[in-house]
């Protein structure tokens, strides 16, 4: 777990001036720079996906990369997602480190078989003889007014599969570092990009060290004493805004950005809840069988006597992702999180 002091400030007022090697970037551009850095570092890293070449991807995350690295390393694939992941597996067997782009969350399902029955299991099936250093980038989450299958949050389906690591950044800095750590990982990583945050800007230290921390460790992004808000990806910003609102009410919220939901940094959450006694988990994915259920269960097991209230969850409903006109009622809003915090304090 990293602490607030170690974290680059991006959300509160008075963000630091970009230091040497630090630029203010959108999250989309930060991922682009992270991909570029990884490709410069290791010529086995290659990108595969639909429209990622001259177009630069529908979100322009791969903009300019084919021009720099050529068509053999930045591959416009046929329009077939199972093929993207299945051939990436074969390339990994040959020693490559493919980074696959799935165009939108709802389009990952044609590749679901390859990801869950093959990619996740080949290292185990071969008793460690064959590693699968494959990254699957998936723009996910709602709030952009998309049509059907353009606003979904399917991360729990992947976290439920042993063999996969599942992560999601919430800031440009994390996006930059996490994509590089995901690429460096010998394990397959499902890298969920919160598309509603693609255009949000923040400082990015382009010389930030690349280790393994962000694939395993949550970070406390705001310290507090009265309630712990646990979030990841797009919901981290919602949690921070909620914390601002709570501060006006005289309540001190601690906000944890999980970064990874497989594995979950349970220790970070437990340490916080033992201090605050209350916990609210926020994610866009449906609450039912979602990551919040897992966190609630673990917090209950490990913090039973510290809890002042049941662990509460705020997230999507057990319905298909709604039409764009209604999506803001479905997504966890500051108001709904505040409502959950009130319920936690009512105990």
């Amino acid at each position: 777990m990293t602490t607030m002091a170690e974290r680059t400030q991006t959300t509160s007022g008075g963000a630091p001036e970009p230091a040497s090697g630090t630029q203010t970037l959108t999250m989309g551009k930060a991922i682009n720079e992270g991909l570029r850095a990884a490709m410069r570092r290791d010529d086995k890293v290659m990108l595969m996906g639909e429209d990622i070449g001259p177009l630069g991807g529908v979100f322009r995350v791969t903009d300019g990369l084919q021009a720099e690295f050529g068509e053999r390393r930045v591959v416009d694939t046929p329009l077939a997602e199972s093929g993207i992941v299945g051939t990436a597996i074969g390339l990994a067997m040959r020693g490559y480190r493919p980074v696959c782009e799935i165009q939108f969350d709802g389009f990952v399902f044609p590749a679901f078989n390859q990801i869950t029955t093959q990619l996740a299991k080949i290292h185990n099936r071969t008793r460690g003889a064959v590693q699968m250093p494959v990254v699957i980038r998936i723009p996910y989450g709602g709030g952009i007014g998309g049509v059907e299958h353009h606003g979904e949050s399917p991360e729990a389906l992947f976290a439920h599969t042993a063999g996969l690591r599942v992560v999601s950044p919430s800031t440009p800095q994390d996006a930059y570092t996490m994509i590089q750590e995901a690429i460096a990982s010998p394990d397959p990583v499902i890298y969920f990009e919160p598309k509603s945050r693609y255009w949000g800007k923040g400082p990015v230290d382009l010389g930030a060290p690349v280790g393994t921390d962000t694939l395993n460790a949550a970070q406390v992004v705001r310290q507090g004493t009265d309630v712990t808000l646990v979030a990841y990806g797009p919901s981290t910003v919602t949690a921070l805004k909620t914390a601002d609102a709570l501060a006006e009410e005289g309540r001190s919220a601690e906000v944890i950005d999980l970064r990874a939901i497989s594995p979950i940094d349970t220790a970070a959450v437990v340490a916080s809840v033992r201090k605050t006694g209350r916990c609210v988990v926020i994610h866009e994915a449906p609450v039912f069988f979602g990551a919040g259920a897992e966190i609630a269960a673990r917090v209950t097991e490990e913090c039973f006597y510290a809890l002042e209230a049941p662990v509460l969850r705020v997230g999507g409903f057990h319905t298909p992702y709604p039409v764009a006109k209604h999506e803001h009622e479905y997504l966890p809003s500051v108001d709904r999180v505040l409502d959950a915090v009130d319920r936690a304090f009512a105990h």
């Binding site: 074969g90 040959r94 490559y96």
Partner: peptide
Amino acid sequence: TAVYTIVIGAHALHAVGYAMGVQRD
């Protein structure tokens, strides 16, 4: 020689990916 694959046909894509790697080498 890859190990057996039980999900029918899934390995055909792995073969093609491996061959794409051969091309890149």
